[in-house]
Nucleic acid binder design. Structure first.
Lengths: 334, 334
DNA sequence: ATATAGCGCTAAATCGATTTTGCAAAAACG
DNA sequence: CGTTTTTGCAAAATCGATTTAGCGCTATAT
């Protein structure tokens, strides 16, 4: 690995001159064009690439973006990460991926490590307990953009699907199909997005003048073991006997399908099904399951764009707290 | 962010003393215990953490491991990444994840970027075209460990499932269940692992004195569009009419299930099914699909261990090219 | 009597870049 | 011709750490 020092020595000039030329400041520094050319040519031929660590130490920038999620598994994340990486590459940035594994204590360590590596900006799927640290980051001029969820009390930029309208679209679809006794299965996470989906369900039902009460909603524990969740859904459905059900998350939909299978019911004749957030399985299942698909790519793209705006790499995006419409994919389950 | 310089100034000692103490070299450098304590206490109280970029520039180490894959989607990768991150955390290392997106030209750039960030070691799911660069890395004392596949011509360490034995186990399971006309569906990738699975099929069939010929194997194009692959599998099965089929990859299994559904055949009465590599869907499908599960966690753990050995962090692992047995998960499809 | 080793710490070199300042020589000016 | 400006580059400071060499003195060994 050749360094700038060696180039300078080989050409008999100072490292300052080499640095200036290679950073395109030859005009500004009035470097002789012939000399500049010679330096550029030599750098190219010798395969010189600046040591990023040294650059980072001096400039405080790293050309690295931290992507923080609680868990890497899951199609949502996979698709998100792919798009983000693709987008960031356009700007010459690399992704440093970290998962916090639902572990609050790890969050602090993690963010500190990234900060000490001069990570320039952060894309974050928020989890409880990181609010403060993320605000701290922004105040230290390390922009943060949230995805998938947000903190209601902060002004941190975010991009996510419109949970309210998405759920409403699903419910309206069921109503239009003639369902009258609609149930809603969600989990007990106290995050904003779940509350919004719930609100979408309740308000849509009310404004359609349909019956909706406490027993229209099942909130299963989030961290529950799979079998348990399936059983609780089955028990709920058996008691409630709805003619349609909407699941508020894709994993709930998957479990729900198993519950329905266990009950021996047939979709859509015995029960109509819609799920918020799509899942690979829904395309393969018999019958295929109607779902509200999250615009994952749009979310990722916009998040990157906002981040780049904050970092001064791109034109600043003024609308910093954005909800994007999801798309109802009509299949065979209604 | 307080720096070592500020600590030294505040305590009226030299930077070197602070550095020695905080790096646990107080004994070696015979630093006065009282002074050492004072320094440690002050560092703790002031929340000092060394700037990793500066450390990296000086030492040439970064405490970062690069995880290079071609594509982040897919359950295999997700599970792998999770375990790797967990293991590396034990050693105080962070993962820098990068995907090459099946793009040969990106590989070079990517590896160079990582190298310039002083990435200490590499965990790689190999793809064509990275052979040379990875060898280059090892010769520059940046250890590389491969997972999932390997390069037959290099001595790079690797950890992967025993493809031959795994396939053989699946085929034997079918034979034991009474199947006589067994088909094998693989893809046309010219990577070692697929060749091994194929060999596992053919040799097991032969040694069981069962008929096996050209028409026992379907090699579908890898990059094919989903619908096309499904159709080609369906056409093949319809013509061949086997009483059992083994799919050589989980995505082939998923497509295969669709093909079988399209043919209107019932599993396992019309056709027995085994798949190499498990998939979430296989547990949910009716009937559940028997599969040879890759020991993903074991692979990840061992790969990390070998890497740490090469980096001198742990005792060197002598067995550097390892194949781990997969596990046949008996379900309802045979 | 001289050489060596130990003490506890500091000064300075170093990693590889960027950036500010400085300084001759050449050019322009009066 | 003497002075100021401009030109074109070099020297040095800087980022924040690690690490080697050495300071000046005393105690022990040769």
């Amino acid at each position: 690995m050749i360094s700038i020092k060696e180039i300078a020595a080989k050409l008999g000039v100072s490292i300052a001159t080499v640095s200036s030329v290679l950073n395109g400041k030859e005009k500004e520094r009035r470097i002789n064009a012939a000399l500049a050319d010679k330096i550029k040519r030599f750098a190219l031929e010798s395969g010189y690439h600046p040591n990023q660590v040294a650059v980072s130490l001096r400039t405080g920038k790293s050309r690295i973006i931290g992507l923080i999620v609680d868990n890497i598994s899951g199609a949502f994340f996979a698709s998100l990460a792919n798009t983000i990486e693709k987008e960031l590459e356009k700007y010459g940035y690399t992704v440093l991926y970290c998962s916090t594994g639902n572990n609050e204590s790890k969050v602090e360590t993690l963010i500190r490590i990234l900060f000490q590596h001069n990570v320039d900006g952060y894309l974050v799927i928020p989890a409880a307990g990181m609010e403060e640290q993320l605000s701290e980051l922004t105040s230290r001029k390390r922009p943060v953009v949230l995805m998938d969820s947000y903190f209601p009390d902060t002004k941190l930029p975010y991009v996510l699907v419109n949970n309210y309208e998405g759920t409403a679209a699903g419910i309206k679809h069921l109503i239009k199909a003639g369902c009258r006794n609609i149930a809603f299965v969600c989990n007990d996470i106290s995050l904003v997005q779940m509350a919004e989906r719930r609100r979408g369900f309740v308000e849509t039902m009310i404004s359609a003048k349909m019956q909706v009460g406490e027993d229209s909603i099942l909130a299963t524990p989030y961290m529950g073991e799979k079998g348990q969740v399936v059983r609780s859904i089955a028990a709920y459905l058996k008691k409630k006997r709805p003619d349609a059900v909407m699941f508020a998350a894709n994993y709930l939909g998957v479990y729900g399908l198993e519950a329905i299978k266990k009950l021996g019911w047939t979709i859509p004749s015995d029960i109509g099904v819609v799920c918020f957030d799509d899942h690979e399985l829904f395309q393969i299942n018999t019958p295929e399951i109607t779902a509200v698909k999250q615009p994952v790519e749009d979310i990722a793209q916009l998040a990157v764009k906002i981040l780049m705006g904050e970092m001064g790499i791109e034109k600043k995006v003024t609308e910093q707290q954005v909800e994007i419409m999801g798309k109802l994919i009509r299949r065979k389950s209604v």
